[in-house]
């Protein structure tokens, strides 16, 4: 699948195709919220008033992606989200209790469903083609990508707008905080300081204009995707799985220019990733990506955006050292969450 456009709203100044992660935005505390653009210039003002934050940044990211690709419509809109539109879900449920299940307002209910973002994109484009949303925890984005892959294979689509969105809300933080997952960081710059317990919550929306065939505008290619649900895999399991994944696509570890690993700053979570970085990836450039976007279930979409732009620019962003990459670029993304969702995405330049 070829990437010919991206659109992203993240905790970094990433919207609108400006300088690519030239400087890392700093966030303090236990969460990294999106840096959002002025939506009035991007979305119909009549629609904005009903949209919660995730719908705004999801739809705006999708529109920016289409703009870069030069598309007015698409054969498929495929979205991944783990939590869906949490803010409106919270509003709806609070009113349900407050008004004793009577007099419920329709807007919060309509906008609280997981497929609202995909639906709003479809409505904005007046696009009646295939529209699907995957809600598969930390595989939501990967399964959206796989769906596009299968549509292309089966000849049901030649192009697809694929993306992911998840948001931080007061409700979600209050609930998830009780599991002891987060820590109050002095700065996301020091998220990976060794020996720390907990991570920073993140959020964001990333969309990709994908084509079955190369058309001249593409700048990166998704070569392969794999998901594995493995809670506490035995020693050596992931090394074997990564070797199998790469060899199935005739790629060796020495072919990789960069490995983006899903470190989140929690020492127990990151131990296995440090082991890989100093072991099988010893001779490769490795880097985390959650210091930019925080930990959230569809964060691999942010990593894919990074990988696509690294392929486009043939270099790492300045905030990662600005190292130039010669010729053909190949990036492996390996993300893993606390529940054992492991995903591998292989990306290369065109």
């Amino acid at each position: 699948m070829y990437i010919c456009g991206t659109g992203i709203i993240s905790p970094q100044p990433s919207f609108g195709h400006g300088p690519f992660l030239e400087e890392m935005a700093e966030h303090r505390g236990e969460e990294m919220r999106c840096i959002e653009p002025e939506y009035k210039d991007l979305l119909d003002p009549k629609l904005i008033r009903r949209m919660s934050r995730i719908i705004r940044f999801g739809t705006a990211a999708a529109m920016d992606c289409l703009k870069e690709a030069g598309w007015n419509s698409t054969d498929a809109i495929i979205t991944g989200t783990a939590y869906g539109c949490l803010e409106d879900t919270g509003v709806f449920l609070s009113r349900l209790v407050e008004f004793k299940e009577q007099m419920l307002t329709p807007t919060a209910f309509i906008q609280s469903t997981h497929n609202t973002i995909g639906a709003q994109i479809g409505l904005s484009l007046k696009c009646h083609s295939y529209n699907n949303t995957f809600v598969h925890r930390a595989f939501s984005f990967e399964h959206a990508l796989l769906d596009a892959w299968m549509l292309f294979k089966e000849g049901q689509a030649d192009n697809a707008l694929v993306g992911a969105a998840d948001e931080i809300t007061g409700y979600s933080q209050a609930i998830i905080r009780r599991f002891g997952i987060y820590r109050k960081c002095e700065s996301n710059f020091t998220l990976f300081e060794k020996g720390q317990k907990g991570t920073m919550a993140g959020e964001g929306a990333s969309f990709f204009a994908l084509q079955k065939q190369a058309g001249g505008k593409e700048y990166a290619k998704i070569d392969a995707i794999k998901t594995l649900l493995l809670e506490n895999p035995a020693a050596g399991t992931m090394e074997t799985e990564i070797q199998l994944f790469l060899s199935a696509h005739s790629v060796s570890i020495t072919d990789l220019d960069l490995v983006l690993l899903g470190y989140n700053g929690d020492f127990s979570h990151d131990a296995a990733l440090h082991h890989l970085a100093s072991g099988m990836f010893e001779d490769s450039i490795t880097s985390g990506f959650k210091q930019y976007c925080g930990e959230y279930p569809t964060s691999s979409a942010f990593a894919l955006w990074m990988a696509a732009n690294i392929c486009k620019n043939n270099s790492l962003p300045s905030s990662m050292g600005g190292i130039g990459l010669e010729g053909f670029v190949r990036v492996l993304i390996y993300n893993v969450d606390l529940l054992g969702h492991h995903s591998l995405i292989l990306v290369s330049s065109c």
């Binding site: 009549k46 009577q102 007099m103 419920l104 329709p106 807007t107």
Partner: peptide, 17 residues
């Protein structure tokens, strides 16, 4: 004001509340 059918439902709830 350019309201639509969803707003009409909101106004019905407003009268009730």
């Amino acid at each position: 004001l350019g309201l639509d059918s969803i707003d009409a439902l909101e106004l019905i709830v407003l009268l009730q509340q």
